[in-house]
Design a protein around this nucleic acid. Structure first.
Ligand code: FES
Ligand code: FES
Lengths: 143, 143
DNA sequence: CAAATAAAAGAGTTCTTTGTCTTTTTTTCC
DNA sequence: GGAAAAAAAGACAAAGAACTCTTTTATTTG
């Protein structure tokens, strides 16, 4: 479904959102532990997201990662698109070069609905909203 | 969603079903052309499916691939499970080691429905039924 | 300013997937 | 039985994804 990088990215951003509601910052080691991901790998991914403005960071002592309001308003769809591109939103289920209504593959009509459900799931809630639910209900970012 | 191997496999099996309704057989080169896949790659995949009894083959002149009735009755889910395993049917959207109802990830409740839709799409129709529709309506296996 | 801290950057490594090429085996058909 | 046809098998190559390690840069704080 998603690439490993994308899975880690989503988990990391939700984790950061959750841990920095109080305006603090959180370091890469804690993040890696918190979401059970390889430290240097998630560091690379966050570097990338940082360059693209989807997460904020500060170097030096008492530095770390955090999220601007604008980043909190981003949807998971934005994250997925940034990392995996939009194949999941518009690609053909059977790998035809172009999904097409006029030359549909055998799964097209059914798959179209599924893609819409996925889009809806990723588009509806923002990082901020998710992290609120993370606090309230019992949701998990690692096992 | 699916691996390349799995995409090619589905397309190939549907193509074979379609081309051998009359009891004939079809060669690997035609299959590769018919579904626009690398010839030797799809050959490997069909070898594999053949060993597992999901497609039938015969060597020598006038040989080729075809499908027993039992193979025609297989669902796409069977094919996907054979090649990609069952991660798509039961894996966690965010890559947690185990999808779990009691320790759900933030996407779990929504994603569960989507997984069910995917299962349904793959489980419902058999290869044979798909290939009938391929003939009747205008469906495509390459672009 | 110096030392310490933390992210950024860069350069690899390893593993998996995808794809190619060559040889072998089986079967048919003359 | 020999030639030709076709899949099976095996070994390899290329690309991409996932992951690691080292060095650099920026920032803080005493
Ligand atoms: S053509 Fe395959 S999903 Fe649209
Ligand atoms: S726990 Fe992630 S999908 Fe079920």
């Amino acid at each position: 479904m998603f690439s490993k990088a994308c899975e880690y990215a989503i988990r990391a951003l939700l984790f950061i959102a959750q841990k920095t509601v109080d305006g603090s910052k959180i370091g890469i080691k804690e993040i890696a532990k918190g979401i059970d991901s390889p430290e240097h790998f998630i560091a690379k991914i966050l570097q990338d997201l940082s360059r693209k403005g989807m997460v904020q960071s500060q170097k030096g002592p008492s530095g770390g990662f955090y999220l601007h309001q604008s980043s909190l308003n981003a949807s998971l769809a934005d994250v997925v698109r940034t990392i995996d591109g939009d194949s999941i939103f518009s690609g053909c289920a059977l790998g035809l070069k172009q999904c097409s209504e006029v030359k549909p593959c055998p799964l097209h009509h059914e798959f179209k609905k599924i893609r819409e459900n996925i889009s809806h799931m990723l588009q509806t809630a923002s990082l901020g909203e998710f992290s609120q639910q993370l606090e309230k209900s019992k949701l998990f970012l690692k096992r």
